[in-house]
Design a protein around this nucleic acid. Structure first.
Lengths: 117, 117
DNA sequence: ACAATACTTCAATACTAGTTGAAGTATAAA
DNA sequence: TTTATACTTCAACTAGTATTGAAGTATTGT
């Protein structure tokens, strides 16, 4: 992943609305949610929701699919994992002693953490 | 972690300079780097570097310590791991089948991934 | 004491993002 | 085919963010 792409992704997550939104989609992966259900869940006006949904999708963190007159949104979980890998890469110069302690104390499930290469 | 704190952290990472900066500090954890070394490494003017260092530290992602006339900056790795845990929490409703596949394919080291509770 | 170094804060400017109401498009229901 | 539903785009305003040069503070070397 390039820096500019990662920046785009973090920008997309830099809003309370979008962060709630994305986490809701993560929670409801992989089936996703239609815009109306999201609006009900988060309680924000449709105009504003559209704005933030667009921000998420154009960053690539969510994808849309049409279902009749509904639009279904899904989180891109692999991309989320890529940006985590980018953020944490070469942590502590991959020193097993230094970094592994942090990692093990983190309360993060093993499957979400980047391999040390 | 509360939403607003996580937003603050993602905002802090929403700049190419600060993202490079933070990743440099992650790579050089836990000993950290002094501002001058960072400036050399990233090649940005001191005024601007100060601005971005302040943004990172006031978000809590980095901490400063005085060393004579130098200032040493260190990444807060546990906080980084907390925000990862926040982002990925309840992924796929913690369904082992759905989510574990994503996680295992992610190339992220086990120690960086949140526990499913 | 004086000058150099290391880094920061200040002030001014330019730009980018967030929110809202009104209007638009597309699908479905009556 | 008229009406309602689902969601988006447009336009306007507001407010926050990034960058830079100049000036400031603190520490070290001579």
């Amino acid at each position: 992943m390039k820096t500019q792409e990662a920046v785009k992704l973090f920008e997309a997550l830099s809003s309370d609305i979008r962060l709630d939104l994305f986490r809701l989609l993560v929670k409801n992966a992989p089936q996703g949610l239609v815009a109306g259900d999201i609006a009900k869940e988060l309680g924000i006006p449709p105009t504003n929701l559209s704005f933030h949904l667009r921000a998420l999708t154009s960053a690539g963190l969510a994808h849309v699919e049409k279902e009749g007159r509904f639009l279904r949104y899904r989180a891109d979980i692999p991309l989320m994992l890529e940006v985590i890998a980018y953020l944490t890469s070469e942590c502590c110069h991959n020193s097993p002693e230094q970094c592994a302690n942090y990692r093990q104390a983190s309360g993060i499930a093993p499957e979400f953490l980047p391999e040390r290469k």
